[in-house]
């Protein structure tokens, strides 16, 4: 495992945008520690949050994670922020971290300032029994953390399914807007974005060559409605094959949703969907 982690660091160098580069030494130190070492979380706090104080997020941030992952390569995870109706604070950013994964930081999610996004669901790989941490930054500038424990093993090296392995499929996208939830205010809608991409973790083996498939994953996704950003993600290898995001937001009346995704080979996938005016 240690060897694989080192290999990953060497080959990948966490080339996931410059914002990550400054964090490499701390992450590297954390990654080379024993997988069961409880000290990994403090070193991740140093690496990712620069030792900023993390408040107890219980009651504010809810992390939905199964106690046992049915399929370690597709573990559904949800993050939801609960703010009382008079609370002036808003959600600015979310982080998702799987402590024991070769690349613990699953993703950073910047929330569009006018989006009203409070809930985000995705699917991730979990390589070992692990704590999963979610951190939310609110407009008060503070970081709120919650965690859950997930029993899963082998998610990062689980062989990929054939469907999105074919080059012709890579980058195909679907966006769906759901609505009609009675507990949501009239302008509240829900969006689902799906992208066909192998999101190779760099830990999967090519069946023919017996060599590790180089890491190849979607590293950035921006989602807009009209000119307003809903969500911007920077992600790593722990996002499942065929990246999938589901989120709620305030519809601003724009007729189109636009998505731009970039993978680690520099391929850009862009698509717009005409939705028609919100009917509610």
């Amino acid at each position: 495992m240690t060897l694989r982690r080192r290999d990953l660091l060497n080959t990948l160098g966490y080339g996931i945008g410059t914002a990550w580069l400054g964090r490499m030494p701390a992450l590297a130190a954390a990654l080379e520690s024993d997988p069961q070492d409880p000290a990994i979380w403090p070193s991740l706090v140093t690496g990712i949050f620069n030792d900023q104080t993390l408040e107890d997020g219980r009651g504010i941030l809810e992390l939905e994670a199964p106690y046992r992952a049915e399929n370690a390569a597709i573990v559904p995870i949800g993050m939801k922020v609960h703010l009382a109706s008079g609370d002036p604070r808003s959600l600015q950013k979310l982080w998702l971290i799987v402590d024991e994964n070769p690349s613990p930081l699953v993703g950073e999610f910047n929330i569009g300032p006018h989006s009203g996004l409070r809930e985000l669901r995705t699917r991730i790989r979990i390589n070992a029994y692990s704590d999963v941490h979610a951190v939310a930054k609110l407009s008060d500038g503070k970081l709120y953390m919650v965690k859950a424990f997930v029993k899963a093993a082998g998610g990062c090296s689980a062989p990929m399914v054939e469907a999105s392995a074919s080059p012709a499929q890579i980058g195909k996208m679907q966006f769906r807007r759901l609505g009609g939830y009675t507990d949501l205010s009239p302008k509240r809608v829900e969006g689902v974005l799906m992208i066909r991409h192998p999101n190779n973790s760099g830990l999967q083996m090519d069946p023919i060559s017996m060599l590790y498939i180089p890491a190849h994953f979607v590293q950035k996704i921006d989602i807009w409605q009209g000119k307003d950003l809903i969500l911007s993600m920077e992600g790593g290898i722990s996002i499942s094959q065929d990246p999938h995001f589901r989120f709620d937001y305030n519809s601003n009346g724009a007729e189109d949703v636009h998505v731009r995704a970039v993978d680690t080979k520099g391929a850009v996938f862009e698509q717009s969907w005409k939705l028609g005016k919100p009917t509610i």
């Binding site: 062989p159 999967q204 069946p207 023919i208």
Partner: peptide, 17 residues
Amino acid sequence: PATLSAQGPYYLKSFAP
């Protein structure tokens, strides 16, 4: 043969516990 070589090491690891 291909599937076995791709998944074999994964099975060995995930069934070890």
